Computed example of a mutant assay.
Amino acid sequence: MTKRQRRTFSSEFKVDAASLVLDQGYSISEAARSLDIGDTALRRWVDQLKIERGGETPTVQALTPEQKKIQELEARI
């Protein structure tokens, strides 16, 4: 059995992928299949982008530039 290497994705890719679902009407499974990523990962990104668009600062690494800046500023305090 071969071990599958963990892939990493940029914040921009995550936002673009989640936007397919939120803004363009794709289902999570359609978007995940077309981007060759897992449904679960895409579902997390969609949920996180919804939170960030709602103005809430996420507890994990932010996706949007605005929320990244907020996290940086909060870390300084």
Rank of each mutant, 00 (worst) to 15 (best):
Q71S: 07
A17V: 03
Q24W: 00
I37T: 00
D47L: 13
E74Y: 04
I70R: 15
D23G: 07
I51E: 03
I28M: 12
T2S: 14
S10P: 08
Q24D: 12
T8H: 03
L35T: 05
F9I: 00
T64A: 07
P58L: 04
R43I: 00
R6K: 09
Q24H: 13
K14L: 07
K14Y: 03
R4F: 14
R76V: 10
Q5Y: 11
T8P: 01
Q71W: 06
R53D: 01
K68E: 08
A75D: 01
Q71C: 12
D16T: 12
A17N: 01
L42V: 01
Y26C: 06
E56S: 12
D16I: 11
Q71F: 04
T40S: 12
T57D: 01
I77S: 06
M1P: 13
L42C: 01
A31N: 02
E66D: 06
D47M: 10
S29P: 07
R7M: 11
G54V: 03
D16H: 11
I28P: 10
L63I: 09
L35R: 05
E74S: 06
L73W: 05
F9M: 04
D23E: 08
I51H: 07
G25D: 03
R4Q: 14
R76K: 11
Q71T: 02
F13N: 03
E72L: 14
R43V: 00
T40C: 07
P58D: 06
W45F: 13
T2F: 12
T40I: 14
T8D: 08
T64P: 08
P58C: 12
A18L: 01
V46T: 03
K69M: 03
R33G: 02
K68N: 01
T8M: 10
I37K: 04
Q67N: 08
S34R: 15
F9H: 14
A17Y: 00
Q71P: 10
Q5P: 03
T57M: 08
E12N: 09
S29L: 10
Q48M: 05
L20A: 04
K50W: 08
A18T: 10
I51K: 10
T64H: 00
A17Q: 09
E12M: 08
M1F: 14
R44D: 09
E30T: 13
V21I: 11
R33M: 11
M1R: 03
